[in-house]
Amino acid sequence: MLIKRRNDIAPSEITPRTLFEGRREFIKAASATVLAGAALYAGLPRRAWADSKFADLQKSPYSILETPNSLREITTYNNFVEFGFGGKSQPAERAGAMKTRPWTVRIEGLVQKPRTLAIEDILRIAPLEERIYRLRCVEGWSMVIPWVGFPLAALIKQVEPLGSAKFVEFITQMEPAAMPGLSLPYLDWPYTEGLRLDEALHPLTLMAVGLYGDVLPNQNGAPLRLVVPWKYGFKSGKSIVRIRFTDQQPQTSWHIAQPDEYGFYANVNPDVSHPRWSQEKERRIGEFFKRRTLPFNGYAEQVASLYAGMDLRKYY
């Protein structure tokens, strides 16, 4: 298969490094005017890339060239509502209590060979790659994340979907003792997400098991999560325990909760506003100026053809 990679973003679109790295300086300077004199700033050390747990990671032609966000940003600013709806820092504070071993994933539904796989076996399905992807949250912020994972297609091949399978459903772990969010009635638990089968088989669609060369932190969806980079982040289910092939479009959690705000497709689209805010721009975490949101989060060249002829306003 011919692998096409977009030329990323035009250089004119990229905020100069000096500018975006100046953001903390900017905020500090603004604070300093209020708090003149109080000088005692020692930046927290950032964890280095060096202590990689995964050896021989393959580089991927699908990686983008933008600078990834820091490990600290990626691991302290999360939405993982099983650990609470009350703020982006809750997952980092609470997810440590979740048990990620032993871990099995049940793959079932319309397949030739339904299987229950242990996470250790899943890690051996395909060579692990590093994939640097953009992540765009439906809330209007974005990051660049160096995932470690393998194409979901490789996992799907293992179970041989039947011709009648049209959709794939992804179900997140429920561990009530560790997940206080499960006692809140805001979503229909377990957290369920879904893709069309062709979306699931697309080479960009990733099963992630790591981050920055190391195993996935719990708050980012350990030990196994979906990453669909051209869709809003909520489509990428975390801590997955069940994958089910169906002939019906799955009923997904956020869509059930607020159908007018969260569609089944949820492709990143600057032209379709969320009812409560615009999606035209996004704030890349770590940057001061907002940037324009790109159709399909910048992956249009690879994925737009999946939706040829579809009204993306209707199927948002």
Partner: peptide, 20 residues
């Protein structure tokens, strides 16, 4: 509350999305 904000800004305590 303003002083608290200034302090957090100074000590890098505003989180990953300080503007928010």
């Amino acid at each position: 509350p303003l002083a608290q904000l200034a302090w957090l800004g100074f000590a890098d305590g505003l989180g990953a999305n300080p503007i928010e």
